[in-house]
Design a protein around this nucleic acid. Structure first.
Lengths: 261, 261
DNA sequence: AAAGTTAATTTGTCATACAAATTGACCGGA
DNA sequence: TCCGGTCAATTTGTATGACAAATTAACTTT
């Protein structure tokens, strides 16, 4: 159970990731007690100091809880720091279930259109410049490969969205950069790329850019929502229950009660 | 600078909080290098082990970055884990500037109406039961003190909102419990309580409850937005730039371009 | 059987030593 | 003068062994 895969060398990073995966994949179940620091130490062949260091990291991610003479108890998923960059990375590798990606896309659908709307009102010249620059990078990457299976520069895409969140002027909204990155990587991983219409995507991104530059917050909101909805439909997924604007009228997306575990 | 206030005893928790406050208050500026672990150890009169433990925590909050032979460098606010419970608590004490609270309320306005809408569609019986129970606690606390300066049970209020976020069925939305708690505590701290109309507030909360129980996601969205807007106006604040539904029509709240530092 | 006491276990803290990595100074040569 | 490389110093990272503190579980006593 606690054995590292034989091909990886024993290092702090590897042990940390290994334990994190055991928890995320559910092979260590909630409320279960992990082995003592001493036994982990001898098992992995590292010092207790290092084991404690690793456990402290896991604790800061919300994975475990430690008590004197009780040991380290696994905490439930509701306590995990899901927005932490590393947690997201590990989760994407482990939780291939679509519930995870759907939750992530839902979150983007809640945050990003509003971030775009705020950016349209608040972005300063530097912000605008950066957003445009990142768009340009996306655009360039497509034009370089003029065949229909062209691929968008993922990093440019991520930076574009992050720049908009930064331009929103809201300290908390800017915290979701990691979520964007994870969602995009996961999206690319799941899609067989051929199904993604990069030209349509690029055009939608351009509309977002224009709207923000024109200080049109409503258009910014709408076009950002379109960008995200495109991604969702391209993946063959569907969101339900969110209240979104669409065109000039209120639109209640979907109507199927869905109960989740 | 690094001296603890003389009245507090030297303990892990106190040193941690002290350093965190120094950073949050800006007395340790971005990119500045902190003293070495050794000197901190002798300064505070604790072992280097404990200093490292504390620094590791600060690192996990995004406050500092450590490099061999360089030392520990203070990171900018954009790297801080603002949604972390402790970071929020410390920040509320330190950053009394209204920008912080306004960002927090804006975040709630983005997340919570959507969470309520999702809850209306997805909540199961247990969820509904809990939401109602928390509302009941709020209601009881008001009725106990039937004078006009009655005070709402803050913890019940927090639990009510958290229960709704949990009922949204979205893993990430449930992560904002800490933000709610901080916002409410900060709100109560800033308001002189007399200005808060608890009866109106209670009534609005009841409408949220009803809407969710009736599976009416649009009404849930609208009434939750009202709850939050009441809070904002009660504090004499104003949000600008968000795209919200209001009644049956799209409403672009505010229109003043606001550039933030 | 209940309550209090003791012993054992496990995490928390300490002290010391050495390893690894990075910087910066020093030195040599073209 | 400038470039390059070597070497030493500094600082964080890891290892080890010991003891403190806290909590559980067993045990004893009434």
């Amino acid at each position: 159970m606690f054995n590292l895969p034989s091909e990886v060398l024993v290092s702090k990073k590897n042990i940390l990731e290994h334990l994190a995966r055991l928890i995320i994949e559910g092979r260590l179940r909630t409320d279960e007690i992990m082995p003592t620091e001493m036994s982990l130490s001898s098992h992995f062949g590292v010092s207790r100091t290092m084991v404690r260091d690793i456990l402290k990291t896991l604790e800061s991610k919300g994975f475990i809880e430690r008590k004197t003479n009780v040991g380290t108890r696994i905490r439930s998923i509701h306590s995990w720091n899901l927005l932490d960059q590393e947690v997201l990375d590990w989760s994407c590798g482990a939780l291939t279930q679509s519930r995870f990606l759907l939750s992530l896309l839902e979150l983007r659908l809640i945050i990003e259109p509003q971030a775009a709307a705020l950016a349209a009102v608040r972005a300063n010249d530097v912000d605008l410049q950066q957003i445009r620059a990142h768009y340009q990078r996306m655009s360039d990457s497509v034009k370089k490969e003029p065949d229909p299976r062209a691929i968008l520069d993922t990093e440019a895409d991520i930076d574009f969205h992050k720049a908009i969140m930064k331009a929103s002027g809201n300290l908390f909204v800017s915290q979701f950069g990691g979520a964007i990155r994870a969602a995009l990587h996961h999206t690319i991983y799941l899609s067989n790329k051929a199904t993604l219409d990069v030209f349509k995507s690029l055009e939608c991104h351009h509309k977002v850019l224009e709207a923000i530059e024109n200080r049109n917050s409503e258009a910014a909101y709408l076009s950002m929502a379109k960008v995200l909805n495109n991604t969702i439909t391209d993946l063959g997924l569907q969101t339900t229950g969110l209240i979104m604007l669409e065109g000039n009228s209120v639109n209640k997306i979907g109507s199927f009660p869905e109960t989740l575990p």
